[in-house]
């Protein structure tokens, strides 16, 4: 019984507490850059790195920071981390930098990072904060990866991945014959529709779980 609960727990965390589709945090980036899985993986890694490091730092200074200046302190920490990550991306993976554009800088105001800092890292020691950061980051990455898979496959018909450091192609698979792909998935309309459907799926799952637990307790 407890095993099932644990398995459900993981699935729950992934789906119901999903930062993008469950909690609607960090939506801006998940709509804008999810046109291919290269961008999604790059962005996901960048956000995860910033999230984990910021959780560590916020947790480290949590006892030193008085309450009324905690927002500027967290902002400075997160902004520094984002600037560093941005510079590293610009220097070593310029193709990723030009694909993600302004959204690297907007990681600063990604609700996920400040949200986790306030809700978790400021009240917990470093170890759990790291775990929380990693799990949230992975959850975010998987969400935007799911969106980009749908948008890239339906929008271009090709599933491809390339090495951002060297621009060499790792693989490229044509899944939908040429001429049958739906180009509107690469554009704004496709982004909104994909997001809506994925969010609705998560919402349906949430309702299903709620109904199941209601029936269970009745």
């Amino acid at each position: 019984m407890s095993e099932k609960k644990e398995k459900n727990g993981l699935l729950n965390r992934l789906l119901i507490e999903n930062p993008v589709f469950g909690l609607y945090l960090g939506i801006c980036s998940s709509l804008a850059i999810t046109t291919n899985i290269n961008n999604a993986i790059g962005m996901g890694i960048a956000v995860t790195v910033v999230l984990v490091l910021s959780n560590i730092l916020v947790s480290a200074v949590r006892n030193l920071t008085p309450d009324d200046i905690h927002i500027p302190v967290y902002i400075v920490i997160i902004a520094t981390l984002v600037t560093i990550v941005g510079m590293v991306i610009q220097a070593y993976t310029p193709s990723l930098y030009s694909a993600l554009g302004a959204f690297i800088d907007l990681i600063v105001v990604n609700c996920i990072i400040l949200g986790r800092a306030e809700a978790f890292a400021s009240m917990n020691p470093i170890g759990p904060s790291i775990a929380d950061g990693v799990s949230m980051g992975i959850s975010y990455t998987l969400s935007i990866l799911a969106m980009s898979l749908v948008r890239q496959i339906l929008g271009t018909g090709i599933l491809s991945l390339s090495n951002p450091f060297t621009n060499a192609e790792i693989f490229s698979l044509r899944l939908i014959p040429e001429g049958f792909e739906l180009p509107f998935f690469k554009e704004q309309f496709g982004a909104f529709i994909t997001f809506a459907c994925l969010a609705a799926a998560v919402s349906a799952y949430k309702n299903h779980v709620e109904n199941a637990s209601k029936k269970g307790t009745k």
Binding site: F189, G190, A191, F192, I193, F195, A196, A200, S203, A204
Partner: peptide
């Protein structure tokens, strides 16, 4: 539809407005 209540339907509206 129950699953679309709340935010998802708002995104569908946004999709149509985007066009």
């Amino acid at each position: 539809p129950k699953a679309f209540e709340g935010n998802p339907i708002a995104f569908i509206i946004a999709a149509i407005m985007a066009i």
